[in-house]
Design a protein around this nucleic acid. Sequence first.
RNA 1: GGGCGCAUAGCUCAGUUGGUUAGAGCGCUUCUCUUACACAGAAGAGGUCAGGGGUUCGAGUCCCUUUGCGCCCACCA
Length: 913
Amino acid sequence: MTRQELPKAYDFKSTEPRIYEMWEAGGYFQPHNDPNKPDFDPDVEPFVIAIPPPNVTGELHIGHPMFISVEDLMIRYHRMKGYATLWIPGTDHAGIATQLMVERDLLRNEEVTREELGREEFVKRTWEWKKKYGGLITNQIRRLGASCDWSRERFTLDPGLSRAVREAFVRLYEKGLIYRGPRLINWSPGLKTAVSDLEVEYSEEEATLYYFKYMVVRKDGQPPVPTEDEYIPVATIRPETILGDTAVAVHPDDERYRKYIGQKVIVPILGREIPVIADDYVSMEFGTGALKITPGHDPNDYAIAQRHNLPIISILDTSAKINENGGPYMGQDRFDARKNMWADMKKAGLVIKTEPYRTTIPRSQRGGEIVEPMISTQWFVTIEPLAKVALEAVRDGRVRIVPERFEKTYFNWLENIKDWCISRQLWWGHRIPVWYCPDGHMTVAREDPTQCATCGSTEIRQDEDVLDTWFSSGLWPFSTLGWPDETPDYKYFYPTTYMETGYDILFFWVARMIMMGLEFTGQVPFNTVYLHGLVRDEIGRKISKTTGNVIDPLVLMDEYGTDALRFTMLVGSTPGNDTNVGPKKVEANRNFANKLWNAGRFVISAIDSLNKGSSTIDHGQSSIAHGRDWTLADSWIWAKLQQLIRDVERLFENFQYGEAGRQIYEFVWNDFADWYVEIAKEQLKHEKTKAQTAETLARVLDTSLRLLHPFTPFVTEEIWGHLRDALYNTSLKEITEDWPEALIIAKWPEPREPEGWEQAKIEDFTLLQDIVRSIRNLRAEKNVAPSRRIAATIAGGLSLDLLREQSRTMALLAGLNEAETSITESLNEKPKEAAALVVGAIEIYLPLSGMIDLAEERTRLEKDLREARSQIERLEKLLAGDFANKAPAALVQKEREKLEGYRKTAEKIEAQL
RNA sequence: GGGCGCAUAGCUCAGUUGGUUAGAGCGCUUCUCUUACACAGAAGAGGUCAGGGGUUCGAGUCCCUUUGCGCCCACCA
């Protein structure tokens, strides 16, 4: 395709895959994309981004484009700045999620359960599943343009990462920070595994509060009669747990029950006798003031039981059915037992009443079923010493969290953290590296042992459990770099620079990575944590399948292109704040990509036509501040660009990517496309200015592409290629230096002019814009056809030179007939039958005979005058007050000038009236 | 019970060392198929920045407070 045939609309569909392929084939995603440079150049600073690997089960959802966009922007920006950038892609085995998915597939396709299949076969099948579908998500990430180093791709169950997991486990064990024992944990009856505190979600729901009688044991040993004898009233929302009660607790100061302390009460139905104890924990005001104690199934009761040495009875099996301790209810489901038990108690005359009650119900994050606190033998990490160090790292600034407010959340969580239950009763994951012999000795080993380390028995069997997925994820920043080996990667790239993720996994992931990083490597795993917001739908609702508002990013990309989606994610969102996304926004940004494309086409065609005329361009200056006879427009757009570069750089340093994108957008569309390109069309027609115009067009486009590249890599790369192509044979050598390399290794732009150089040019051009707008406004008001060239008489006053110099541009933009336009310093007599405009101190008369309604003219001028006068009043008041004394001088001066301007305007208008 | 966030144009949102006429996109009104782009161009309407108080020469921006939403953490049966 020749450049002349570039399509009018940017064709992202065919462009994006081609570009990505080119990048990948060119090795641009590797840390040193220049083949001439050594791999681990000590003189080049590495920039490494640590990211949460997506679940291997995952289909691309709308959250992915969010983090991929941010991460890719960070990487591309630093790559362009010359860092050795590394972004390791990969996936997480996601124990529970994957196992569930494979189980579901097996049941549906082969009608077998995982138990029927057996562990070995099931794990084999899961690996097959992973091979088949694991690439889905990574291909989708490629489609998003992620410039990660695929040659270093990792999976958490890889041999290397698995080795790191073992090493980590063994080290913690040897240090005494891992222990095994029966504790009260959260049990998910659906998944039949323990889950950590973080994997339990609490939802407020309607429940029933059941009031019943705990009959006090009679001194005579006779069974108490519910209607006559003494009892302690107790309330519960889980009556079935009565089966596991081992005490009734009351407050020591409670007058109502004090007399019973030390006595015994009788467990309904079962008839066991349990003590009445006193404990401060019990609240006298709440419920009946008496609390049943079920240490086996309630964390608070568990704590009380520990204080009072109470026995602990477990009444549930792993499916949450009543076990042998539940007497007649054995084998019943927990909810059936609840009903049956209550009915039986009612018959026995032990119930008082029930009432509706709103409370928080713990549910499994994955399965959604009610989680049961249960006593179970599990593996735990003693977390407090790790947490202490991790807290310190953020407190002293070794790890910075963006936005800062999340540091507080982080502190709060780590300060109150409890031991981490790391064992899971699953099959898919890293199996716990512990072996037991028949004598019960434990062997903890890095390599699979053949015999018991204590007694030498060869009859050893490995622990059945696997580790919490987050245990391996927590090692990601260094396990992917080769830890525990001191590999070149590890030595050069660790610790990493940024960690980028959503704030929702601050605890799950970030905190654990910091803890584990510090523990195992002695260093923080990353310097900065950047937390992006969550993506919501167009009207701010949380995305969920049940709401039916799922947004498929692939559909959006098909419709509008990847760049549009990426730009949408990046612009209009701020760190840590949720952002709403819908097709409307993406469409608008598709339009922007198209705008850029067409501006690019224009620039390229300008260069092409110049080449056809075989014009020679004398191009000696690398800066346009001095020397050449640049037009105001040339200087102005260049000045705006210099400012833009500075602003974007500052914003990037402060993680304000959204604002940076917005500013580039505005520059490209409003300044470059709407104004400069329009003026360039005229300048290209003239021998004197055409070369410099082409050069300015090329330079501004070139720089804009670089600035935009981290946001919208595909379209910028594509235009860049065509631009280089066009420039290759011209004498516009300066920006051809990188040809034919891809934009991705082009340098990040630096401002080329001294700071402050821009101001005068911008002010002059702004005046020109004001005049043009004002004339256009009048034309619109009077319905003057756009094609009609009108004459004008302009009194330029102090701006006379500028206006004379810019008369052609002004005429062009405002639709004036240049030949019939006169520009003078002042007018002795104002033209008749003319509409009058005043811009600052400049008077403009447009003779529109037949269209002038004097009354209308007067009204308009009066309105302008009123505006000017109110401004004068405002500014006079301002300058008369303390402002003049206390505000910075430059600011005061600026306001004075403004006042002067309005005074002149008012003066001119008054003269016209 | 603690902690955090949000409240700015009809809608969705920007506005980060406080600087004086508050911005964008979409939507709306009027005009234009002008040779980069109708996925466009030009002009325009639309906001007492949730309410109240304070600091300051100056507050959308900082402090206090009220109201309304939302989120996170937490062991009251």
